[in-house]
């Protein structure tokens, strides 16, 4: 199960809407072994594409060095799908390389079809474990704060 606070959840959804129709991506770091997504970091999608995302390699190193210095790990790795449902694609599964992370997928499809902008159409938000090519969906619990 992924437990995430409302402000971080909202920030991820806002990021996905802002970058639509391109895929948005980022992480939420937390103390190693804590399973607490505490520090949201938006990343640039170096692919700048509606069907692909990739962290810029220089920014990726900077991000990991910062996490190592702070004894953090990527608790959540997220990206958006902008024309399909929030389920990992074959590429997502093939490239998943953090077996300990919650892979969050958000989909802006329904929201965009309803006109985008400020409309209230939902943005799908789902979480998965991806280990050795196996995808397991898990429950997402949104809490007011992690406490």
């Amino acid at each position: 199960m992924l437990t995430i606070d409302q402000a971080t959840y909202d920030a991820i959804v806002a990021h996905a809407k802002r970058d639509h129709p391109d895929e948005a991506c980022g992480i939420v770091a937390g103390p190693e072994g804590s399973d607490r997504p505490e520090r949201h970091v938006e990343m640039v999608n170096a692919a700048g594409s509606p069907t692909f995302y990739e962290f810029d390699s220089t920014e990726l190193l900077a991000l990991y060095k910062q996490m190592w210095d702070r004894d953090e790990e990527p608790v959540v790795i997220y990206h958006s799908h902008t024309a399909t449902e929030a389920y990992p694609s074959r590429t997502d599964i093939g490239l998943a390389s953090e077996p300990g992370a919650h892979y969050v997928l958000v989909s802006t499809k329904e929201w965009a079809e309803a006109g985008g902008g400020n409309n209230d159409a939902p943005v799908e938000f789902r979480s998965y474990r991806i280990v050795d090519g196996e995808v397991t969906e898990e429950e997402v619990t949104v809490v007011p704060s992690l406490g």
Partner: peptide
């Protein structure tokens, strides 16, 4: 030397 898998997907 640092090795890091790309964080990428479709």
């Amino acid at each position: 030397v640092v090795v890091l898998p790309a964080v990428a997907g479709g």
